[in-house]
Simulated scan of single mutants.
Amino acid sequence: MQQETAKWLQAHPESPFSQTPASASTPADPDSAPVVEVDDFLPPDLRVPSRDEIAGMMMRYDKPLILNGEVRSCPQCGAYRDWILLSVRDEVWLRCRVGHETLEPRLNAAWYNRNSGPMDRMHPTLEDGLNHLGH
């Protein structure tokens, strides 16, 4: 999934999700990585991926988003509900139904984790996740 996300990010440099911090490194080629035997309790298909393996998380947020007593609206089209919230690198991005994406500096990964439910599905691409959530 991480490799597919990296490919998508390279193909869409205009997306705010393509902006990587200067300290980020590219994932190593899995074919060249040394094989390490680990005796794990769970088989690989039942393990939960680590946070490092997930490019980001997303959830629907259908009701108005109220921050500091103010209803948050899309700066481009004025939409104020039916959001997709994307948590990427300790930032929360808002995506309206039309597809405008904007950073919300008042929210962070801790807020996202407190307000999201359990992760029920992983998607190979951003588009697949958006389709799954009805956007």
Rank of each mutant, 00 (worst) to 15 (best):
M122V: 10
R97L: 01
R114K: 11
G134S: 10
V71Q: 00
R60D: 04
K7Y: 00
Q3A: 11
N108E: 08
K7P: 03
A22L: 13
L107T: 04
H123I: 15
E101W: 02
E91C: 14
P21S: 12
L42Y: 12
P44R: 06
V48I: 13
S25N: 11
R51V: 14
R89I: 11
D29M: 06
A109K: 02
D45H: 06
M122L: 15
L46M: 11
R81F: 08
C74S: 01
A79K: 02
L85T: 04
M122S: 12
S87G: 13
G129I: 12
P105I: 15
D39C: 08
L126E: 08
L9D: 03
Q3P: 10
C74I: 06
T20Q: 08
P13Y: 01
R51D: 10
E4F: 05
E53V: 11
W93R: 05
D82S: 07
N108R: 04
N68W: 01
I54Q: 00
S18G: 08
T20N: 01
I54K: 05
V36R: 04
C77A: 07
P75C: 06
D52L: 05
M119G: 10
V71D: 00
L130S: 09
S25L: 12
A33H: 09
Q76H: 12
E4Y: 03
D120N: 14
F17K: 09
L94H: 03
N108H: 02
V35N: 09
P49R: 07
V71W: 09
E53L: 11
D40W: 04
M59V: 06
G99P: 08
F41G: 11
R106I: 03
C74H: 00
V71M: 02
E14D: 12
V71I: 15
K7L: 10
L65D: 05
R97G: 02
L103H: 12
S23I: 00
D90E: 15
E37D: 14
K63C: 05
S73Y: 06
N115R: 10
P16A: 06
A33L: 14
I54F: 02
